[in-house]
Computed example of a mutant assay.
Amino acid sequence: MKTLDIFALILVIIGAVNWGLIGFFRFDLVAALFGEMSTFSRIVYALVGIAGLYSISFLGKNREVREEK
């Protein structure tokens, strides 16, 4: 896996855990760590969103690998 793929997956996992905490416990981990809509928390949210969009490309990569075999 490329470094960018791994970084994107880590950010997507962070986002998923954060949304899970919000859904189950109404606890926003990013806001708790970096402040409610502070500059840094907004950067984290933006990076997680971009990583999610980038991760859509993994769907096509997985099909390409299967077709080559």
Rank of each mutant, 00 (worst) to 15 (best):
G23K: 14
V17A: 09
N62K: 12
Y54W: 15
V12C: 13
S41T: 01
L4M: 15
L9I: 14
I10V: 15
A46C: 10
I43V: 14
G49H: 08
I6E: 06
V12A: 11
L21T: 13
L4E: 15
F34H: 03
F24H: 05
M1Y: 01
N18E: 14
V17D: 04
M1C: 02
G35M: 12
F7R: 12
G15V: 01
E36A: 04
L29N: 03
M1S: 05
V30G: 01
L29W: 11
S55D: 09
S41M: 01
V17G: 07
N18M: 07
I13G: 10
K2I: 01
L33P: 02
L11T: 07
E68G: 01
V48S: 02
G60R: 07
Y54I: 12
L33R: 05
M37A: 10
T39W: 14
M1F: 04
V48H: 01
R66W: 05
I10A: 13
G49K: 05
G35Y: 11
I6H: 00
E68D: 11
L11Q: 08
G52V: 11
V48F: 00
A51W: 03
R66I: 02
G23A: 15
V17W: 06
Y54T: 09
V17I: 15
G60W: 03
F24A: 10
F27S: 08
G20C: 11
M37L: 07
F40N: 02
V30R: 00
G49Y: 08
I50D: 04
I6R: 09
R26E: 12
A46Q: 04
A31Q: 08
A51V: 02
T3C: 09
L53V: 14
E67R: 09
L33T: 11
A32G: 00
E64W: 02
S57L: 05
Y45Q: 08
G35D: 11
I50N: 03
E64N: 10
D28T: 06
V30I: 15
V30A: 03
S38Q: 08
R66C: 02
I6A: 08
V48T: 04
L4G: 10
A51G: 05
F7C: 07
A51S: 14
V30P: 01
I56G: 13
G15R: 05
R26H: 13
S55P: 09
V44I: 15
L59M: 13
A31V: 02
I22S: 01
V30S: 00
W19I: 15
I13R: 03
F27I: 13
A31K: 07
R42E: 13
L9C: 11
A8G: 06
S55A: 15
V65D: 04
A32M: 06
